[in-house]
Amino acid sequence: MLAKEDLASFKLEQILAKYTYARDFFISLGINEIDPNLTVKDFAGEINYDVLEDAGLNREQLIVNFLAFISRMEALKKSSRNVVESITIIGGNDKFGNAEHINLELKVGEVISIVGPTGSGKSRLLADIECLAQRDTPTNRQILLNGEVPDINKRFSMENKLVAQLSQNMNFVMDLSVQEFIRFHAESRMVANIETIIHEIVSCGNELAGEKFDQDTPLTQLSGGQSRALMIADTALLSLSPIVLIDEIENAGIDRRNAIELLVKEEKLVLISTHDPVLALMGDKRLVIKNGGISKIIDLSEEEKYYIDILEKVDKKMLNIRNHLRTGGVIDDKIISGLTGQ
């Protein structure tokens, strides 16, 4: 690697050979022609004043930003996926100041569901995890990474963004095809083999989705279920964040059990905040939130495991009735007896 402090005195030819993405920096400033024989310093010195004016940078600022760009991209390339093996939640207090008495270690590959009434503090818990609270948020909780107090730089560094989020309210807003969209995401992650990852994500998304879609489908034409399936596949296979936060997933048109398994297989710690019984029982542990604090931790029992199948069947029956109504059907004895099993 070229020494960073000297980088500005190297010829662009060398820099572009070493850091292939360096050209993007200039292109994003509207500078498309680069003289490879000049050093960065000299090149910055020769850029036309109007171009700089439009870029909103003077010559020195341009060099500083260029060097910062290279080092940030290098950091991004090096950042690996499995920097986190566990997080530990050390209890603080609830809204009324009562202590939580909690010391809970959660490991990657685990699924944790979070239940509690609306406004009980589920989001606050997720926020504490996201910002790696150090007894300095309203709950006074402390979060440890791999059993240790995280260093302050890690707390706010973008490359170590810990939590990926997925919620019912999220939509695709880009006007792109599925394929172009994954390509954009892969490029921003500086992934080497983009075609392979596009193929993997599309086929994985299709396994999760009820109705199939292909890679040329525009994002905005995907159904709710297809969108969610693609979001999960993409988060599992392409997002760096070791923790995935799921805020409800509708049960229409997506295989939720497979979706969660996929995330677990990719070594994610999965937290699901939900009111849905089937989803809640997918957690190995269940955190019950009350008055802003964790009031109970329930381990999934053998008995509950046994009942998941039954709950899923009931769920499926309700879904069928929904589809029945949707397509113009009426509710009669036959439908109801099918539901109650009589």
Binding site: D24, F25, S28, V64, N65, A68, F69, S71, R72, M73, F156, M158, A164, Q165, L166, S167, N169, M170, N171, F172, V173, M174, F181, I182, F184, H185, S188, R189, S227, M231, D234, T235, L238, S239, S241
Partner: peptide, 26 residues
């Protein structure tokens, strides 16, 4: 960020980083 997908958030943040590599992103 609560209404767009995780991937779009990541792509957007990457573009911000390209435009301003010095800044902290929150």
């Amino acid at each position: 960020g609560d209404i767009v997908s995780q991937a779009e958030r990541e792509v957007f943040a990457f573009r911000v980083k390209q435009s301003n590599p010095r800044a902290s992103i929150i």
